[in-house]
């Protein structure tokens, strides 16, 4: 075990999977000025992960998961596709926090995620498999061209696992991840590329990144009047 353990750790470090170098501390509390572990936000507007066909599917699908109407933004309006694209291109997509080694087997629902795919691989395998099912079921049409009611029917079939997909993809596993990631893009801090103008936070009444509510604790039943704030400030302040 001796040598192999060391080599394996060194390899894992190299892949950026683990933390930093070993350190020894004695005699004082370590203090490194300006070493804040700032959040890994995104910038720009370019898509870097999805192909155009994948993007068309994602935009159509997430806008059925959270559709637009006067009550609040839809997922596309909120920037969810851009959020997903950057999440899948980054460490999350690579499965940085998933154990992906074999052997693999389907397992019980209680045993949770048992796919061999990282999230990026799962999206990459699932979208063409869904398009293949849709084409076979709806006269060669693409998902994005279906009527909303048919899109919902397909999404429900994925959600329940009733639709069988090619490519080694479990439809319910993919749907659960897509729905979770969609909510993440809709409701997380705008630095990650979604929740545009904090409109989803405004819709529900969440004031965002405030850190001090002391004066409101016993003001029972009053509405806190703060407009939402993100790590980069209020909508008015953000660069556009």
């Amino acid at each position: 075990m001796a040598g192999t353990a060391g080599a394996a750790v060194a390899a894992a470090r190299h892949d950026g999977m683990l933390g930093g170098p070993p350190q020894t501390f004695t005699g004082a509390v370590p203090w490194q000025e300006g070493a804040a572990d700032a959040p890994p936000g995104v910038s720009g507007t370019d898509f870097i992960f999805f192909t155009s066909a994948e993007r068309a599917f994602i935009e159509a699908a997430v806008d059925r998961l959270i559709p637009p109407d006067p009550v609040g933004p839809g997922a596309v309006e909120a920037g969810v596709p851009f959020f997903l694209d950057h999440q899948l291109a980054g460490q999350f997509g690579q499965g940085q926090h998933y154990f992906l080694a074999g052997p693999w087997s389907k397992g019980t629902p209680q045993q949770g995620y048992q796919s061999r795919f990282s999230p990026a691989q799962l999206y990459r395998a699932a979208i063409p498999a869904i398009e293949k099912y849709v084409a076979a079921t709806f006269n060669g049409a693409a998902f994005s061209k279906l009527a909303a009611a048919d899109q919902d029917k397909v999404l429900k079939g994925l959600e329940s696992g009733a639709i069988n997909l090619d490519g080694g993809v479990d439809s319910a596993t993919f749907f659960a991840m897509l729905l979770q990631n969609t909510r993440e893009g809709y409701l997380s801090d705008p630095i990650y590329g979604g929740n545009k103008d904090m409109a989803a936070w405004k819709m529900i009444g969440f004031p965002g990144a405030h850190y001090d509510y002391k004066e409101w604790v016993t003001r029972h039943g009053e509405r806190v009047p703060y407009p939402p704030v993100g790590f980069k400030g209020r909508p008015g302040w953000t660069e556009r």
């Binding site: 894992a12 683990l18 460490q91 499965g95 926090h97 998933y98 154990f99 993440e184 409701l187």
Partner: peptide, 17 residues
Amino acid sequence: DELRYMWRHHLFQNVSY
């Protein structure tokens, strides 16, 4: 930061290894 700490497990054990 809900996304980073809760959903991306920034402070939790990394189960990948």
